[in-house]
């Protein structure tokens, strides 16, 4: 008797699992339809590697750079864990765009799936937010100046620009406060919203099914 049989006898897992696993996949689905799933896989990977990067990373101007160097050069497998987080961050943008183009190309955003397109746009913006806030965390020259430029762009918005810039930086200058708020947004705020919007996205896909192309 397998572990599964043992659990199933007590918890009656079969019907629930069957509902999930025996869900029919439409015949017109092809590899292009995998990009949402691939993006989700990458997101899970980012969550896992991110949790472990936090084991050594310190979000303070005194320690951020050195702690990242420590991860890269001293900690066992640090280069691999950081490398995975780094490259997956880039790949996730690629796959999210392919997924979005596929949905657009197939006209899958049309009624009744308008809301899921809106949820998707939110997911896209969240993905961009992860990229923007994560870029500052190594606290090296590239991180610092990229954020200087990025926040200056926010500052160039008419009327509310200077407020937005101060909001993003936590003051007029880019410094300790900026680093900590970018860190918080990157590891707490965005993940929370990401999970909420993913749940909505997946719920709607399940309810509405995968669209027929065009």
């Amino acid at each position: 008797m397998s572990v599964y049989d043992w659990l199933d006898k007590r918890l009656d897992l079969r019907p629930g699992l069957a509902k999930m696993l025996d869900h029919p996949v439409p015949t017109w689905v092809n590899w292009l339809y995998c990009f949402g799933g691939i993006t989700f896989f990458f997101f899970v990977l980012q969550a896992i590697t991110g949790i472990f990067l936090m084991l050594y990373y310190v979000p303070s101007p005194d320690h951020a750079y050195e702690s990242v160097q420590y991860i890269t050069n001293t900690v066992h497998f640090g280069k691999i864990i950081r490398g995975m987080h780094h490259w997956t961050a880039t790949l996730i943008v690629v796959t999210v765009v392919i997924h979005m183009l596929r949905v657009f190309w197939h006209g899958a955003y049309k009624a009744p799936r308008e809301l899921n397109w809106v949820a998707g746009v939110c997911l896209f913006l969240l993905t961009m937010g992860f990229g923007f806030t994560g870029y500052l965390l190594p606290w090296d020259q590239k991180a610092y100046w990229a954020t200087a430029v990025g926040t200056n762009i926010a500052g160039s918005v008419p009327v509310v620009g200077s407020f937005l810039l101060k909001l993003a930086r936590g003051g007029t200058d880019l410094g300790a406060v900026t680093l900590v708020r970018f860190f918080d947004v990157h590891v707490a705020l965005l993940p929370l919203f990401m999970v909420i919007f993913l749940a909505g996205h997946f719920f709607m896909i399940r309810r509405q099914g995968i669209s027929r192309p065009y």
Partner: peptide, 11 residues
């Protein structure tokens, strides 16, 4: 995934 992660955490 687990192999490098365990080594990393226990480093």
């Amino acid at each position: 995934l687990l192999y490098p992660i365990v080594g990393y955490a226990a480093s």
